[in-house]
């Protein structure tokens, strides 16, 4: 087997909020082009883990390496790190005072000082990719939840990240809108994007994930290929969880 390029390495990560220890010694490795899906009950630390990888939460212990480089949030320029690591949120967090197109163009223009005309062309292409070309000039308030999330994905892709993190991207959506967002994410996975996805969509995990990691009480209890996790989980806690949600 050829050598895999490790994009993200999380080593013995610890994170507490006050007295509550949310992440206890989490270790995780994601190779280039892999899709890792994090599953687990709410409060198990899934979201906190990917927020730590985007440095929206600052770890209390352990190490996070992006493309082999250990990141120190106090010393390293986090804007540069985040330009490589995109993030999509449960509640979309689109900029309500900007049109769809402006949402997508904002970060390249401001953070990268990119050329305006070129950024616009790229943004339009991205909107086409997520199937929202005709919505370029409207404000986010007139979009459905599914459309908002697809814009958020396009906005994140506009920075040409090498890694994408998804924090429960379909949890705030009406059931009939979940499919279109998952479809967009599937396309991304097929394009070879490295992804970490927190989700409760088990069908999606089965279909798209290279690895599924089950988290419980701040730890990754089990990480395996999806067929193994879903058909033959090794850990009792994984089995219990899957019995409850499937």
């Amino acid at each position: 087997m050829e050598d895999k390029q490790v994009m993200i390495r999380v080593q013995n990560l610890k994170k507490s909020f006050g007295q509550v220890e949310v992440l206890k010694d989490v270790t995780l490795e994601v190779a280039k082009g892999e899709v890792v899906v994090l599953i687990g009950a709410s409060g198990s630390g899934k979201s906190t883990l990917i927020r730590c990888i985007n440095f929206l939460e600052i770890k209390n212990g352990g190490d996070i390496l992006i493309e082999g480089k250990s990141i120190d949030p106090k010393k390293d320029d986090l804007t540069k790190v985040r330009q490589k690591v995109g993030m999509v949120f449960q509640h979309f967090n689109l900029f309500p005072h900007k049109t769809v197109l402006e949402n997508v163009m904002e970060a390249p223009l401001i953070a990268k000082k990119a050329d305006k005309e070129q950024t616009k062309q790229e943004a339009l292409q991205l909107l086409q990719k997520v199937g929202l070309s005709e919505k370029a000039d409207v404000y986010p308030s007139s979009l459905s939840g599914g459309q908002k999330q697809r814009v958020a994905i396009a906005r994140s892709l506009a920075m040409k990240p090498e890694i994408m993190l998804f924090d429960e991207p379909t949890s705030a959506l009406d059931p009939e809108l979940v499919g279109e967002v998952l479809e967009t994410m599937k396309q991304l996975a097929q394009d070879g994007m490295t992804m970490i996805i927190v989700t409760h969509e088990m069908g999606f995990a089965k279909e798209v994930a290279d690895w599924v990691a089950f988290m419980n009480q701040g730890k990754i209890v089990e990480m395996a290929r999806p067929e193994e996790i879903f058909n033959n989980p090794k850990e009792e806690r994984t089995r219990e969880f899957l019995n409850r949600v499937l």
Binding site: L78, K80, Q83, F89, L94, A111
Partner: peptide, 18 residues
């Protein structure tokens, strides 16, 4: 303003002042 707005900006690689 919802704190998700700041997080979105930061996650896109913009600085907090931007």
């Amino acid at each position: 303003i919802d704190k998700g707005q700041m997080e979105a900006g930061l996650s896109l690689g913009m600085s907090s002042s931007q």
